[in-house]
Design a protein around this nucleic acid. Structure first.
Lengths: 230, 230
DNA sequence: CAGTGGTCTAGACCACTGA
DNA sequence: CAGTGGTCTAGACCACTGA
């Protein structure tokens, strides 16, 4: 249970910052001073402070020193579950119904100019509609999708298993169900829905663009922040 | 523009992994071999690989070696901006109007049983309502809130500056505006809104419970995943 | 039980930049 | 222009764990 020295340094300043003992903007001791306090080499101090810096707790400026970061935003960890797993975890029966499957040339967005497979369908939990999905998958990046069996497996699940992405962004908003969406979801037009729009890449190569519209009271996203570092 | 050696090592393996040249599960060279390839010391290799490891691209196992991580699509980084900063960044004028401020004893939730300050108000961007906020702040954990000037600074911003939390969870969903919320936001009853409900702690001590209801088409949340995480 | 990564030392030269 | 952090070296001992 002997804690590594660098970790001890990291914990020391993390605690003082979170306790408010070191306020935002306050200057930390120099690396030389921390070396003396902890009786360790400069490399150990440097690694510990680099960790805090990349975690966003401190800012390091040459010649000026090291300072407690002024909090402007917090980042939380958002869980993005695979829908099939999520529904199964709820103890419900999952099903995806593919309504449309066609090739198209994309005219806008990060897939613009590419040939893509255009997929439209509905996710069900215990035969109640959960979300409509509208997805484009790049045929250049994922040629295998052209022959994939998407009747038994949702496109998102298939992609997760076959073509993992390395980069993604999501935009989350509340929208009113369009007449078409309302019809597919069994809602009144204008009913509140949660829209999740995600773009994914593998390296710099675009993979997919997907928009999912969830029935408002049947789905929520959960995010966490805590000392369980990452 | 001489690139640091550690960065060169990092870039080298990041490129090979993203290009698929090193597939998930593949083993990377040992630190000894990389030292020889790049003609550098072991510390430099170690720092470079540690970076890739904390970015989630590789996994390091003692005795076994270093391997390309099998991609997990579970979690993204959700930015939770301070509303005052967000509105200012959009080039709009921010204002918070406090409508209600009273002490109460909380009867449910993670603050249950505590004396708390109950705050209700509206966030504005260029005088257009952006969100209604309903917040409870523990008076035991944050006694200073009792005398804080919340007319000039929103409670969330005040807390951010004065009492940083260490743990939080958020639930994000789409809801229909209640009659009261619709009135405050200038919407029709039932209009789609984004609801963000957040609980925060400092250590194990509960700090605040807040529910913000955003006008659907004036706000969205953004999440990222990728090696360029920051 | 041997090879791997984890951590650390006691130095070094350098780039940057604020006093 | 002097003090700070950024990066690097060439070693070292250790803990872990899979062959």
């Amino acid at each position: 249970m002997t804690q590594p020295l660098g970790e001890a340094i990291r914990d020391h300043f993390e605690r003082r910052i979170l306790a408010g003992d070191l306020a935002p903007g306050a200057r930390l001791p120099t690396e030389q001073e921390i070396m003396a306090d902890f009786q360790c080499s400069r490399m150990t101090v440097s690694k510990a402070l680099s960790g805090l810096s990349s975690a966003g707790l401190i800012e390091r400026r040459k010649r000026a020193g090291t300072f407690v970061a002024r909090p402007r935003a917090h980042s939380m960890v958002l869980e993005v579950p695979d829908l099939a797993s999520l529904v199964a975890a709820r103890g419900q029966q999952y099903r995806f119904r593919l309504d449309r499957r066609e090739e198209a040339t994309v005219t806008e967005g990060h897939l613009s100019g590419e040939r893509a497979l255009h997929l439209v369908g509905v996710h069900f939990a215990d035969e109640a509609p959960l979300a409509v999905e509208d997805r484009l998958v790049s045929l250049a990046a994922v040629p295998a999708i052209a022959t994939a069996d998407l009747a038994s497996e949702a496109p998102g699940t298939w992609l997760l298993h076959h073509v993992p992405w390395t980069e993604a962004d999501s935009r989350i908003s509340a929208v009113a169900a369009s007449a078409n969406e309302a019809g597919l979801l069994g809602l009144a037009t204008g009913a509140p829905c949660l829209s999740v729009e995600r773009r994914t890449w593998r390296g710099t190569e675009p993979i997919t663009l997907v928009r999912q519209v969830f029935v408002g009271d049947r789905y929520e996203l959960v995010a966490h922040f805590g000392p369980g570092a990452s």
